[in-house]
Amino acid sequence: MRKDINFSPVKDVHVVVGKDGEGWKVFLINRTRDKLENVMVTSRGYGETKTEKQQTSTLRHLIPFIEPGEYALIEPIDESVFHLNNEYWVSYFIDGQVYDKKFIFVPDSILEENLIFIEELEMKGILHD
């Protein structure tokens, strides 16, 4: 059962929403000294407007591994969902130990004025830690 699993705290693993000439994309960056193995990312958007609740489809992504100092593309993201909570639930293993964390970009946090240069990606983006 989930309560019986020891989840260690996630450090130096980040979700980034970056923008390049093709549009907005979501990446996972490994800034640890360890190889991330069996990386599972579940993404979804949810929230509500003045009149209704909104929810996107839940997508699941499996990345076999991410080497130290490397990154992986999770998915493209459309500007039409920036008004929602955009959640990325990341789970992975390091040396047989499971790590797990939810990264949530709150509504309207994905904005041009919040972009910073992300060295690994060599592009501007919004880094969530």
Rank of each mutant, 00 (worst) to 15 (best):
F65V: 07
F65L: 09
F65H: 13
F65E: 13
F65T: 14
F65A: 13
I66M: 01
I66D: 00
I66T: 07
E67L: 14
E67C: 02
E67I: 00
P68E: 10
P68A: 13
P68G: 08
P68K: 10
P68R: 09
G69T: 03
G69C: 02
G69N: 11
G69D: 00
Y71D: 06
Y71F: 15
Y71C: 03
Y71A: 02
Y71S: 09
A72K: 06
A72Y: 02
A72N: 07
L73S: 11
L73C: 04
L73M: 10
I74D: 04
I74K: 06
I74V: 06
I74G: 04
I74N: 09
E75C: 08
E75H: 03
E75F: 07
P76K: 04
P76D: 09
P76S: 13
P76I: 03
P76A: 08
P76W: 00
P76E: 01
P76N: 09
I77F: 13
I77Q: 09
I77E: 05
D78G: 07
D78A: 14
D78N: 14
D78W: 03
D78F: 00
D78M: 10
D78K: 08
E79Y: 11
E79V: 04
E79A: 15
E79R: 13
E79C: 05
E79H: 09
E79N: 10
S80T: 14
S80A: 13
S80N: 15
S80I: 02
S80Q: 14
S80M: 08
S80R: 12
V81F: 13
V81T: 14
V81M: 13
V81R: 12
F82E: 03
F82N: 09
F82S: 02
F82W: 03
H83S: 04
H83Q: 07
H83W: 12
L84W: 06
L84V: 07
L84F: 00
L84K: 05
L84S: 09
N85C: 03
N85R: 11
N85M: 07
N85I: 00
N86S: 11
N86W: 02
N86C: 06
N86F: 06
N86T: 15
N86Y: 08
Y88S: 01
Y88F: 15
Y88M: 01
W89Q: 11
W89Y: 15
W89T: 12
W89L: 12
V90A: 12
V90F: 06
V90C: 10
V90L: 04
S91E: 08
S91V: 02
Y92P: 04
Y92E: 02
Y92Q: 05
Y92C: 04
F93G: 02
F93H: 14
F93A: 08
F93V: 12
F93R: 13
I94L: 14
I94M: 14
I94E: 12
I94V: 15
I94K: 15
D95T: 01
D95A: 12
G96C: 06
G96S: 00
G96L: 03
Q97T: 15
Q97M: 11
Q97R: 14
Q97K: 15
